[in-house]
Design a protein around this nucleic acid. Structure first.
Lengths: 190, 190
DNA sequence: TTGCGAAAACTAATTTGATTAGTTATATTA
DNA sequence: TAATATAACTAATCAAATTAGTTTTCGCAA
């Protein structure tokens, strides 16, 4: 074994996170991670299932972190206040961890049930918060889908440089949430 | 020169579109395109600037097609009806051309001004439709950003398999648009 | 008719990255 | 102390992009 601090899944994810958030998801390679850890690329196979395994792990890691962030944001709040807090936390995560956020969007590329579960936990968190409105099962799902869509869409477009006009982006986000929630209240009388 | 139908930017884009829409954007390579056109990969350099050039071209092509689709959908309509039509056309494009849709989302990866302009034309189309509400410049931008966010977010999540529950997806989309427009009318009294 | 020049194909070689096979060194533990 | 598992290594292979340099073909003009 080598001398320095031993490499393990933890340290690999740490290195990978640093790479994707600073240089983009596209820069994630076994070579770049190995280089950051001062080992040779093949040595990584002792810890992960190659590049696809690395991608799966980083996506799971991203889901877990994102979920803990929105969960913490909504904790102790309810209704609209919780929704605003969760949305803000979500957008913030995408800003602070752009690479990790992109990794989370690639969920469908991999089969790993651990990844599917990690993704489901995020949806569950949103579902819990939306319970406050007392909607029936089906309408609750429409609402959760709507919330996820607008938040992800906004984060995604902002991240890809889609908002060029010199108009405050946070204000736009706030408007979008206002419109959605106002519509929600009007439509379901909640 | 070879015998068959001559290869040019047109035929390359045709082949590339078929590849990305059937096998995913990730499968787009000079090798896969060359193979489909029955030529050797290096020969493509006579028509495009390598892989990044190919990606730029396919993204422009995607933007142009998407713009023509939403423009046609909104034509002859105004206000909410136009917005619904445009949104539906947008979502439909993402369903019919998943690879092309993904390519459009990679705009920020390339510098090409032609690509920036193609992307701007899409935004312009939305801006035109939103003019109907008579909002001032700033609020108009919030509205356009909101619309783009929710439509893109929904299309993106649907595409990545984000909607697993056995609840009608089109109904969810309709609800999201209803909520947004209802909120829009309430907030701006239009 | 012939042959020039551009366009567009080719082959060969290089580079980068993932991956596999097989080997070696270390560290724990029986 | 010796056995075993872990985790590193080197060497080799494969795939894809890219570059250099070459050849083929076609249209057009002398």
């Amino acid at each position: 074994m080598a001398q320095g601090v031993s490499v393990n899944l933890q340290t690999i994810l740490q290195a990978a996170t640093e790479i994707v958030d600073s240089q983009g998801l596209k820069s994630l390679s076994l070579t770049s991670v190995a280089h950051m850890l001062s080992i040779r690329p093949p040595s990584l196979y002792n810890h992960i299932h190659g590049l696809s395994g690395l991608r799966t792990e980083i996506a799971i890691h991203g889901c877990d972190l994102l979920n803990s962030v929105i969960m913490r944001a909504a904790l102790g709040k309810s209704g609209d206040r919780a929704v605003y807090a969760m949305a803000e936390a979500f957008l913030n995560f995408a800003r602070i961890h752009p690479g990790l956020y992109d990794a989370v969007q690639e969920i469908h590329e991999y089969q790993d049930p651990r990844l599917q579960q990690a993704a489901e936990r995020i949806v569950d968190t949103v579902v819990q918060v939306m319970r406050h409105y007392g909607l029936d099962e089906e309408n609750s799902i429409h609402t959760v889908r709507g919330f996820r869509s607008l938040v992800h869409g906004f984060a995604s477009l902002e991240r890809s440089g889609g908002f060029r006009m010199p108009v405050d982006v946070d204000h736009s986000f706030r408007f979008l949430l206002d419109a959605f929630l106002t519509g929600l209240h009007a439509i379901y009388s909640v």
